[in-house]
Design a binder for these strands. Structure first.
Lengths: 205, 205
DNA sequence: GAATATACAGACAGATCTGTCTATTACAAG
DNA sequence: CTTGTAATAGACAGATCTGTCTGTATATTC
């Protein structure tokens, strides 16, 4: 309680050590890898420190607790994730409806990749199941942002019943992520794309 | 502590403590509640023992390790789950296609229930993500059994492309489970039913 | 050189984890 | 009565967990 010598002005941003790879970023990167691979509870602070090559006090200077570290990792990954998704969708110049289908191509690419181990955010909500838990809420915020992107694409495609359709397409994607991880096969994502296709075609008449 | 009076009324002609509730079953029941609520890693053996009112050595007499306990809980829940699902589906005499739609009614009922906290088996695979982990495999076996039920219903309904359709409907259900838990709302399950309806109608022409 | 900020190594506290072990109680069957 | 079984409480080992603390090293900036 209290303790901690008072000298704590928020002077953290006076200096940028190296080309963007601060100790803080090393921690976030390593923590992500371990949380993603082994889970949140199963990954201890000490393991993160050893892998990142960072001292314990450095971690606790940047983050007040493990929970805060997790929250920071979730936030950073959400940004990276959404940016990577956007880039894929907009890579080629496509009409909105083509972009919507491209979202499922992106999904297939993702679940087919060697590094795929399910959804980082689904796992967070699985381990922190209470809706009021800050970690659950952070993960949910990511899902909401992603769902918003899908919705935007549906609206821009001028399809009927855009809200309902966007919801349904999102469900297909979530289901495909779960099932692809569960079985270790990308096939569920392919099935999801086919279902999406049918639903989109349906929303045209 | 506080060994609440466990008087053994009932003549006990057999050596079963009470109506079929052996120590082993008490452990499985309590373990399920805690694993489901708090997660697998976050739930310690000691907590299970305290809640179940069972001594440690009794647990290790019935199960060699925590992992074996988890596996036993998964198996038992899978049976209960499938049986409850079957009963719901076949409650009223329905044509196969009606049963298929009833599966989504069941889903809505489930995610709307106060006890719903996501899928026990999805969570197991989230925490034990390695495909070769016995726990992951046990959870996957449950998913395969469930998927088999859906597939059977689709086939019996005489719909086109039964394999693909069954896969797609399963994805909708998995997605709805994830999203309903994430948001704490049953709406995703309702959306899933609507999407299922569209896909089924599509498989008739 | 002095001051400041960042990071380091490593000990430490206190809790909790899984799993083992002993010694004791209760009860039913031979 | 004797024997065997199932369960009990509780100590214990050894590991690991989060978070705190001390003291030191490095590098920049004034």
């Amino acid at each position: 309680m209290s303790s901690l010598s008072s000298a704590k002005e928020s002077s953290a941003s006076t200096r940028r050590p190296r080309q963007g790879l601060t100790k803080r970023d090393q921690l976030l990167e390593t923590a992500w890898e371990l949380f993603y691979r082994d889970g949140y509870h199963a990954t201890g602070i000490d393991r993160i420190l050893a892998d990142a090559g960072v001292a314990k006090m450095t971690l606790y200077k940047h983050f007040r607790s493990k929970e805060e570290l997790i929250l920071a990792v979730l936030e950073k990954r959400s940004e990276q994730f959404c940016e990577s998704f956007s880039r894929f969708i907009r890579a080629k110049k496509r009409a909105p409806e083509r972009q919507l289908l491209a979202a499922f191509d992106w999904l297939i690419t993702w679940v087919s990749s060697k590094e795929f181990r399910g959804c980082f955010f689904q796992k967070a909500m699985a381990e922190y199941q209470d809706l009021h838990d800050p970690i659950h809420q952070a993960a949910l915020a990511h899902k909401a942002a992603f769902h918003g992107e899908i919705r935007r694409l549906v609206v821009e495609s001028g399809l009927l019943n855009s809200k309902a359709l966007a919801d349904q397409l999102t469900l297909l994607m979530e289901g495909a992520i779960v099932y692809s991880h569960a079985t270790g096969s990308p096939m569920p994502a392919v099935q999801a794309r086919e279902a999406a296709w049918a639903l989109i075609k349906n929303a045209k008449r």
